[in-house]
Each structure stands twice: as structure tokens, then as C-alpha cells.
């Protein structure tokens, strides 16, 4: 039971960071980026390429981060920048369509470049676990969970302590008013999108250390969006607890009903929560 919870928590923190990228883009820009999962997988392939060159997966995170940041900036300029001045509903609908097309395109592009074989990165330390209070804790999972916590703290400091971060929060609350304060909204959108996508480098690496293939992006997006909705849409501080919640529910389901019902239980609980608490579990007043 305790062991089950450990795996639930570690998986859940992975769900949490995946959701963070989606929640940021949605919270700030009201764009729904369906391609986030595929961009995570793209990051995993870049990480695979780097590991073939001999770079350690964890050390390659910053490189993947920069690569995804630049790629996202180009994507934004070419595909998403026209939506900036649309109203909220039009933004959601149009970004959904654009990112869906993008997802299909990137999925296939990845297949062309890297074939559809299932891959994984296996460094020497990939199987290492250590014991704590009689529980086995995998090293990589723990590192992932720590990275998730550090990332959210950094993001919090960025949003609350820097002028640029405050302008991002302002844009998320009233885009037009922010522009009247002298905030360059297009630049803020571009940067926020690129940051949100570059955050994907951490789940990229964690997933690369498990296993991945070109078309699993949507599966991970689904996990992410479930967590985003559980946490309360637009609330970036709720994603980690909501991710842990989903991870633990899934782990408990494996423990009680067996592995084949894992996804079903997770989604059933999700639907139940949507019915009972439609605004999400961690909705609160406060910044962004």
C-alpha cells in the first residue's frame, strides 16, 4: 500500500508538470494547446539524439529547454500570433483547431525522422532505487518530483517578483488594460508561450527515461488536461496537487482493481469530480 502511494506520488508529479505547461498557456493567453503532449515527445526525441551523442539525460534538460523555447517561438509567430486580439471564446476555438493540426503534423514529422519504433533512454542509473522507511523509491522518479517542485517555485517567484512576471499576470487578467500600461502584449504572449513549451523539457526527459513513440503525445496531453481541469482552469498553483491526486487515484486503483483498470478509474473519478465540484478542486482567489 505504501509502495503504491510512492509510485502514485511520483507519477502524479509528472502529471503535474505536464499540466503546468497547458495551464500556463490557457491561464495567460486563453489558448488551448493540444500539441503540448506532442511537443513533450519532440523534446524526448531531442533528448534521445543528445544521449546518442553521449550527453546525460538530466544534463540535456537545459539544452532541450532552449531548443523547445526557440521552436515554440517560431510556432507562435507562424501559427498562433494572429489570434492575439480575438475574444476569449474565439481564441479557445481557433487555438484548439490550429494546435490539433499542428499535433497531427508534428506526430507524423517525428515518425518520418525517427521511425515509429518505441524508444527509451537508459542511462546506467535508470534502475537505481533506495530505501526510505522500508519503501523503495526510484531515483529518477524522485528527481522528477523534486524538479517539479523547484519549477513551480521558480515560476511563482518569476510571476510575483519580477516586473515582467507581473506584466504576464496583468495580461492574464485584462489584456487590453495591460497594453494601456505600456505592456507589449504580443511579446508577452510570445514569451509566455515559449516558456510554457520549454517547461515541457522536464516531462520530456522523465518520459524519455520510461518509454515513448511518436504518437503517444496525445495520451500525455490527456493526462495533463484532466489535471488542469481538476485543479480549476487557469489556476497554475493547483496543478501539482491535482496531479498528485490523479496519480494517487490511479495507483490506488492498480492496488485495488489491478493494472488494467487504471485509466478507467482515473477518468471515472475525474467525471465524478466534474459533476460534484465543476469549478475544480483547488480553485482559489489570487494571482494568475
Amino acid at each position: 500500500m505504501g509502495q503504491t502511494l510512492v509510485y502514485g506520488i511520483l507519477n502524479g508529479s509528472l502529471y503535474g508538470i505536464i499540466a503546468l505547461g497547458i495551464a500556463l498557456v490557457f491561464g495567460i493567453m486563453k489558448y488551448l494547446n493540444l500539441a503540448q503532449g506532442t511537443l513533450i515527445i519532440l523534446g524526448a526525441y531531442i533528448g534521445l539524439y543528445l544521449s546518442q551523442l553521449g550527453l546525460d539525460p538530466f544534463l540535456s534538460i537545459p539544452v532541450v529547454m532552449v531548443a523547445l523555447f526557440l521552436f515554440a517561438a517560431v510556432l507562435f509567430k507562424t501559427c498562433f500570433s494572429r489570434l492575439i486580439n480575438f475574444d476569449e471564446e474565439e481564441k479557445i476555438k481557433n487555438s484548439l483547431l490550429i494546435s490539433f493540426g499542428l499535433m497531427l503534423f508534428l506526430d507524423n514529422l517525428i515518425t518520418v525522422i525517427w521511425t515509429s519504433d518505441e524508444r527509451s533512454i537508459t542511462p546506467a542509473y535508470s534502475g537505481i532505487t533506495f530505501e526510505l522507511f522500508g519503501l523503495r523509491i526510484p531515483l529518477i522518479g524522485l528527481a522528477g518530483a523534486l524538479l517539479a517542485v523547484i519549477l513551480i517555485l521558480l515560476l511563482h517567484l518569476f510571476l510575483t517578483r519580477t516586473y515582467f512576471g507581473q506584466s504576464v499576470v496583468a495580461v492574464s487578467q485584462d489584456q487590453e488594460a495591460a497594453s494601456l500600461m505600456g505592456v507589449n502584449v504580443s511579446l508577452t504572449f510570445l514569451t509566455s508561450f515559449a516558456i510554457s513549451v520549454s517547461i515541457a523539457s522536464i516531462p520530456s526527459m522523465l518520459i524519455a527515461l520510461q518509454s515513448f513513440s511518436p504518437t503517444v503525445g496525445l495520451h500525455w496531453f490527456n493526462k495533463g488536461i484532466v489535471v488542469v481541469i481538476l485543479s480549476g482552469i487557469g489556476n497554475i498553483y493547483g496543478v501539482l496537487p491535482a496531479g498528485l491526486f490523479l496519480g494517487i487515484i490511479e495507483a490506488l486503483s492498480v492496488y485495488i482493481f489491478g493494472p488494467s483498470y487504471r485509466e478507467v478509474t482515473g477518468l471515472a473519478v475525474f467525471v465524478l469530480i466534474l459533476i460534484l465540484v465543476p469549478k475544480g478542486l483547488f480553485r482559489r482567489r489570487g494571482a494568475a
Binding site: 499576470v169 487578467q173 485584462d174 494601456l180 507589449n184 502584449v185
Partner: peptide, 24 residues
């Protein structure tokens, strides 16, 4: 010119409906 450049040029606006950042 976009609004942020007009503010820089020296013109500020109090928009209709106040348009504050409500959660700040």
C-alpha cells in the same frame, strides 16, 4: 502604433469600465 508605444509617447488612458486587474 500599438497601445504600448502610445503610452511610451506620453499619452495615458483611463478606459471605460475601469478595467483594473481585479486579482492584483
Amino acid at each position: 502604433r500599438p497601445p504600448h508605444e502610445i503610452v511610451k509617447a506620453g499619452i495615458s488612458m483611463v478606459p471605460e469600465g475601469r478595467r483594473l486587474f481585479p486579482k492584483m
